[in-house]
Every structure is written in structure tokens, then in C-alpha cells.
Design a protein around this nucleic acid. Structure first.
Length: 518
RNA sequence: GGCCUCAUCGUCUAACGGUUAGGACAACAGAUUUUCAAUCUGUCAAUCGGAGUUCGAUUCUCCGUGAGGUCACCA
């Protein structure tokens, strides 16, 4: 049997990380088995429709390196792949369900339903349709229709039976008593189906073999089974169904990520300077694990390794530290040219015309230790200036930073001292407290030492540079490490930096001397 | 509240019914180093509770407890 999976989002919102994770697993299962991955556009809710959302989501999935074989944009053997273009199909299906007694017309007004719900809630009962229209006679129905009354179509849940299905992810046969299942509306009064009818019909029509979806659908699965049955699908022909876990937000233990959480938006992490390859890799492991516990995968490797067995049952919690670890791995293995172009692309894309709320957001959510909006704006302006700076120089500077950065913000911040002399240096930091009183002398001697080096800093040798610094430490009875630290603080303005010899070489003799003053 | 699902180190997870319960991230310590990183080594750390089945239970069953999902003419 040819494997066919689908991802069927509604264009009512913008993608988030959970969205990518779900696409990833559907994509992997299909590709692993030489099958097809289908993108279906479930736009049956015209009220919440957001123009452009479909295109936005598709564009991002492509940016993460995935693609689909059939979909609204590229067609396919079961076109169209947009549900509002398939309305006549659903009408026929609904009629069939009504004709064979699997569904019935309901003439209840929304007002009555709301009232019913209210009463049931007040009485602490389960809210459920009371079945008023379940047993209307054909005469009553004809009369109401002739009278122009609007109606919906509801699934007719049979009495006294078990409804069950096997969940391939929880590996569990889930059973409901039909008394616990509501007669849900499968066709709205405007003639547009709800998810239940549209998606089930399409899954059958499009020959989907594996339905992997969010766990929010688990509780309506019995209705879906009933729809399959009503449509005449034999049990062995029903798609395999499995329900994914949801990613939990560590900030709110046990709760899934809120849509307002900017880090969870599909562009959230990229804006924060994370690589898509690293994000994708981390997402692979949230909800799935291979038998051998391997963790680092390219998309291709993941597709080859993916199996349904590894799909998890319990909801994972997002761990930013692990995300950082993955990003570090991918950042460090990037060839320098590629790193530079990715870095510049990041600036061009996100920082050339940053929106005010984005800047605010970065200050609040990033771990890049930018305390104020002013400082963030300054950093952004600096980033933009890099776009026109000398590429070769920039490349050499980034080479020094590559292995000590977690994300692009770190690179940006560590790059700053190459272009701006530190101001308001804090000499009272603990890293210098052993040589506090010797600082002026140390700095002036360092200045003298550097002025004796060749004017062209590319002519400097590491030995010459280092022995000079060590000589100063001996002369003043200070530890070499403290003298290096004083040098570092004078040049960089911070106790953390790339190796000083290389950094000063890049900075040049003239600039180094300017900074070597107390 | 009803129905359904889930439950192993702080986090992600591995373990034909038999392991000193393994790995990764984090944390901590050490090595290396002119700092920070990176790298290497090591340490700490878990089977939610209670019954039962079994020679033997992380694994199977039941009961608790906790967490999640759902209860719309939304998906």
C-alpha cells in the first residue's frame, strides 16, 4: 500500500512551532515510505479566514526545507485541494448520510441551542444536543423545508453501541459508549460542512492512509468513525489514525504555548537569531525519539530514520537550553562563507526595518542580555552598518566569534567592540580586583609595548606580543592573567572576548593604542 | 463536572517481564586556556502513590493522585 499523509491546516492563523512539528512528522512518514505528502487547505470557516495566512504558512514550511507533493498551489490527482472549492462534493456526501440514516436534518435555531446549553450548564449536566429533530417525520421535514426553514445536518449517533478506533501513537484501542457521543453538526445551515464531514470525506477521497493530527481531535474521533461508516467505508479501508502530543511551555508548567508567546511563532526563533536547521532538529525530538537515542539529524537523515514506533505519547516541554545547544552545533559547523551570508541575511530580513513592537519583544524575550530599548536600537543600527562594512574584515572577525556564540545576537554583540571603542569602562569588576591599584601602570606599559610592535599589525607575531605582556606582569609583580585581563577590558570593555592577539591584530595598531589608556 | 488520553533524573528520552534503570541537555567539579566559549573527563540526579498477577514488575491489571485534551452552525 502506498503511504499518503496530509497536513490540513485552516487558514485562520499563522503557523507556530507545533505546526512545523506536525508537518515534519507527516512529511517524514510519507517520504520514508516513498509515499506522498498532501497539503489540504481547510478553509470552511469563512468567518475566521485570514487572507494570506495560507501563503504565509506554506512559505515558511518551504523555508524549513519541506515540500508537499499535492496541494492547493500545485494541484494533483485529487484536486482541488481547497475545501471551499469542493462544496458540491460534500453536499452529495451529506445527502448520502441523510438518505442512509447516518445523519439527519436539524431545524433548531442557534438561539434554541444556546438556551439549551445554558440550561444544561446551569443544571450541571453535560452540554449535548437533546435530539429534538432526531425523529422528525418526512412530512414534518418537507413542511419545514417548504416553509423555507434553515437546517443543519447532524450525525445520528446510534444508541447502545460501542464506537472504537485504534490509535497508532498511543497504541491504544479507544472505546466510547455511544451515549457519550454528541450528535455533532456536520453541515452548517449555509451549506458548508464542518471539519468533521469535510476532513473525513477528503481523507477518503484523497486516499489518505495515515491521519496524524493534533490531540485536540481525539475526543471527536467517534463522530469521525461514524462518518466513515455512513460513507460506506469498510473498517479495513479506514485510514490509520494517530494523535500527536502538544509542546508545553516551561514558563507555564503543564500548559501549551500560548499563541501570544512570540517565541512560539514560526518566525520567533529565527528573529532571535536561531538557525532553521537547528530549530527543525530540535522539533524532530519533541514528540519522537529513535531507539538508539541519536539526536543530531539533517532533514534527510530524519526522513530515513523516522518510524511510527518512536512517536511519543506524553506531551514534551520546550527546553530553551537544549535549543541553544542545537543552535551552537549547527552554528559551529557552518562554513565561514555560509555563516557570513546567513548572518547578513538575518540582518537584512529582520533588522533593516524593525517594527517597534518587535524591538520591545526582543528586549523582553531574548536571552541576549539587552536591557533597554535604547540599547537594542543601538545594536540594530550597528547591525545595519555591518551590511556595508568590508566583507573580508567582517569574515575574519566572525571567525573569532563563531565558536563562542549561540545565536546571531551573540555574534552581533561580540562584534561590536571591533567597530566601537568601549565607553565608560568599568574597571572595578571582580576580574580585576587583584590589580586595582596597578591598573594605570599596567595600561601605560601595555601601550608602550604595543607601540614598539610593527605599524602593520599583520606583521606581529604571537610570541613577540605575548612575551611583551608577560614581561609587564613580571616587572610589576602581577599575574600574567590579570595583565591580559586589563588589556582585554581596555580594548573590549568587557571581561569576555575572543582571543586578544587575533582581536588586536584585526583592530590594528593605531586603534589598539587609542584604547590603551586608563 | 462528564468523556477520553497521559505519567522514568530539573528537561527530552532508552530499557523481549530479569540491566548496578542507559543516553542527551542543564547543573556541578576537574583538565585545557590570556578571559569567555569550544573541547575532554568525572559527579549529582528518575521509574507518581497503593494494592494485585508473577519466582521476578519501569514494563501487565485494578484503585487512587496529578497533568493534558474536549464538551461551538471553530478548526
Amino acid at each position: 500500500m502506498k503511504v499518503r499523509t496530509r497536513y490540513a491546516p485552516s487558514p485562520t492563523g499563522y503557523a507556530h512551532l507545533g505546526f512545523v512539528a506536525r508537518v515534519l512528522m507527516n512529511y517524514a512518514l510519507a517520504r520514508k515510505n516513498g509515499g506522498k505528502f498532501v497539503w489540504r487547505n481547510e478553509d470552511t470557516d469563512q468567518e475566521r479566514f485570514i487572507p494570506g495566512a495560507l501563503e504565509y504558512n506554506m512559505k515558511w514550511i518551504k523555508e524549513f526545507g519541506m515540500d508537499w507533493d499535492e496541494g492547493p498551489d500545485k494541484g494533483g490527482p485529487f484536486a482541488p485541494y481547497t475545501q471551499t472549492e469542493r462544496l458540491d462534493l460534500y453536499q452529495v456526501a451529506a445527502q448520502k448520510l441523510v438518505d442512509n440514516g447516518s445523519a439527519y436534518r436539524c431545524f433548531c435555531s442557534q438561539e434554541r441551542l444556546a438556551e439549551l446549553r445554558e440550561q444544561q450548564t446551569l443544571a450541571k449536566q453535560r452540554t449535548k444536543y437533546d435530539g429534538k429533530c432526531r425523529n422528525l417525520t418526512q412530512e414534518e421535514i418537507d413542511a419545514k423545508i417548504a416553509n423555507g426553514e434553515k437546517f443543519t445536518i447532524r450525525i445520528k449517533v446510534p444508541e447502545n453501541r460501542k464506537i472504537e478506533f485504534f490509535d497508532v501513537i498511543t497504541k491504544n484501542n479507544v472505546v466510547w459508549d455511544s451515549a457519550d457521543v454528541d450528535d455533532m453538526i456536520i453541515m452548517k445551515s449555509n451549506g458548508i460542512p464542518t471539519y468533521h464531514l469535510a476532513a473525513m470525506y477528503d481523507d477518503i477521497a484523497m486516499e489518505i492512509t495515515h491521519v496524524f493530527r493534533g490531540s485536540e481531535w481525539l475526543s471527536t474521533t467517534p463522530v469521525h468513525v461514524l462518518i466513515y461508516e455512513g460513507l460506506g467505508v469498510k473498517k479495513e479501508d479506514m485510514p490509520v489514525i494517530g494523535h500527536f502530543t502538544v509542546i508545553l511551555d516551561p514558563a507555564t508548567p503543564g500548559k501549551k504555548f500560548s499563541k501570544r508567546n512570540s517565541s512560539f511563532r514560526i518566525n520567533g526563533l529565527p528573529i532571535q537569531g536561531y538557525l532553521k536547521s537547528a530549530i527543525l532538529n530540535y522539533l524532530m525530538l519533541l514528540g519522537w525519539a529513535p531507539k538508539d537515542n541519536r539526536e543530531v539529524f539533517t532533514l534527510e537523515e530524519y526522513v530515513q530514520t523516522f518510524d511510527m514506533e518512536g512517536l511519543q505519547k506524553a506531551n514534551p516541554t520546550w527546553d530553551q537550553k537544549k535549543m541553544d545547544w542545537f543552535n551552537g552545533i549547527y552554528l559551529r559547523e557552518l562554513p565561514l562563507d555560509k555563516l557570513l551570508s546567513e548572518f547578513k541575511y538575518w540582518i537584512e530580513r529582520y533588522l533593516t526595518e524593525p517594527e517597534e513592537d518587535l524591538v520591545q519583544n526582543l528586549v523582553e524575550t531574548g536571552d541576549h542580555k539587552v536591557a533597554s530599548i535604547e540599547k537594542m536600537k543601538e545594536l540594530i543600527a550597528f547591525a545595519n552598518s555591518l551590511l556595508t562594512s568590508d566583507e573580508e574584515t567582517l569574515k575574519k572577525q566572525i571567525a573569532l566569534i563563531q565558536e563562542r556564540a549561540v545565536n546571531f545576537w551573540h555574534i552581533l554583540q561580540q562584534l561590536e567592540f571591533f567597530y566601537k571603542a568601549p565607553v565608560n569602562i568599568d574597571w572595578s569588576i571582580k576580574q580585576l580586583n587583584k590589580v586595582t591599584d596597578k591598573l594605570p601602570e599596567i595600561v601605560s606599559k601595555l601601550n608602550a609595548h604595543i607601540s614598539n610592535l610593527p605599524d602593520d599589525s599583520t606583521q606581529w607575531t604571537h610570541e613577540e606580543w605575548e612575551s611583551g605582556v608577560r614581561a609587564i606582569s613580571e616587572e610589576l609583580g602581577a599575574k600574567a592573567g590579570d595583565v591580559f585581563m586589563a588589556l582585554r577590558v581596555a580594548i573590549v570593555g568587557s571581561p569576555f572576548s575572543p582571543p586578544m592577539f587575533e582581536a588586536m591584530q584585526l583592530l590594528g595598531k593605531e586603534e589598539s593604542l587609542k584604547r590603551l589608556k586608563f
